[in-house]
Amino acid sequence: MVVCLLGVWADPVRAPHEHEHDHGPGAPVQYFRPPPSAPAVAAASPAPALVALPTPVVEAPLAEVTPVVPVTAAPALVSLVSPAVAPPHATLKPIASPVAPAPATAEPFTTNMPGDFPEPPYPRWARQQGLQGNLLVLVEVSSAGSPISVVIRESCGSTALDDHAVVWVRQRWSWAPGPPRRFLVPFIFQLQ
């Protein structure tokens, strides 16, 4: 808990109350596969409720496989596929994906949403320290199209790299005007 509190202290954008916004029915609790060695569930013995949650553990080899999300608005954002669901206690081995994963390329991030979504750079300090990882950002967009709040839903393990993505989205991304919307944006920072 100390860790969490410090994380909050170190990063004002990570307001804890923001987390409760996005756990509607069917909303994914986790997007990226937890590390195979992390006994996350076993360690959390005081919370048996966790086991009962329909936590989709999805093997996303190159993050092209997305867990099920009810499509509410804005169709044709992503092609959704049936998730390969594994029980939380199952050994987290790669699960064959129902669709062939497209190779992750260095092509810029594209979407057919109207707006401006420049891809963030890979910061030099992160490359110097060899930081990489996957993170998930929740963005609330105003009717004017600007991000009202940008928070981390899943951390990549480095607060600094999380913040880099959050600040980038908040400062550089803009949507076309429309109704207030919310988006989950996965970021994959990969060194080669």
Binding site: D22, G24, G26, A27, P28, Y31, L62, A63, E64, T66, V69, P70, V71, T72, A73, A74, L77, V78, A104, T105, A106, F109, T110, T111, M113, E119, P120, P121, Y122, L138, V139, R181, R182, F183, L184, V185, P186, F187, I188, F189, Q190, L191, Q192
Partner: peptide, 11 residues
């Protein structure tokens, strides 16, 4: 419910 966008892959 938030909509999920395609992953932004930063290499």
């Amino acid at each position: 419910t938030p909509e999920k966008l395609k992953a932004v892959v930063v290499k």
